[in-house]
């Protein structure tokens, strides 16, 4: 039988800040790389993000953030995944954050962080190398 595991990614933007242009760009980039992207929009709580990730059975969550609350929101998502026994879902972040936050976020379980300076093909390559469709 032909088996084609496809990488599924949830792109979400927790928190209250503004627009979702960045999230949309990354969603399109992932689609063009052959991934299935579930886009769940703006203003979500970490609880909602995790619930969506579980219902959609994604391999990775890409969190997008522009201002501020990432130090709370991102680790909270990791924590909730752990509570649900879904630690196998890789969590990444994208957006604008102070340099010094990056090691802290990584320590909190965010696997990788992308900033506006990261070339999109690098992001795709990272996903291909680090996210395996779960089987």
């Amino acid at each position: 039988m032909n088996q084609k595991r496809k990488i599924r990614i949830l792109v979400a933007k927790p928190g209250l800040d503004g627009h979702d242009r960045g999230a949309r760009i990354i969603a399109r980039t992932y689609r063009d790389a052959g991934f299935e992207v579930v886009y769940s929009g703006l203003h979500q709580t970490p609880e909602e993000v995790v619930q969506a990730a579980i219902q959609e059975d994604v391999d990775m969550i890409g969190l997008s953030s522009l201002a501020g609350a990432h130090m709370y929101l991102f680790p909270r998502v990791v924590e909730l995944l752990h509570e649900k026994g879904a630690d196998d879902i890789v969590v990444c972040g994208g957006g604008i954050f102070p340099e010094e936050d990056i090691p802290k976020l990584k320590k909190a379980g965010i696997k990788e962080l992308f900033t506006p300076g990261t070339p999109l093909d690098k992001v795709v390559k990272w996903v291909e190398e680090n996210v395996k469709p779960r089987g």
Binding site: K6, A27, R28, Y30, R31, D32, A33, G34, F35, E36, V37, V38, Y39, S40, G41, Q44, E47, E48, Q51, A52, Q55, E56
Partner: peptide
């Protein structure tokens, strides 16, 4: 590409915490 953007969930997000609703794209 064989990829897809599944965007319908955006409009239904308020139901995601409701145990009586299961949404799948």
């Amino acid at each position: 590409s064989g990829g897809a953007i599944l965007g319908d969930r955006v409009r239904m997000q308020r139901h995601s915490m409701d145990e009586g609703v299961f949404i799948r794209s």
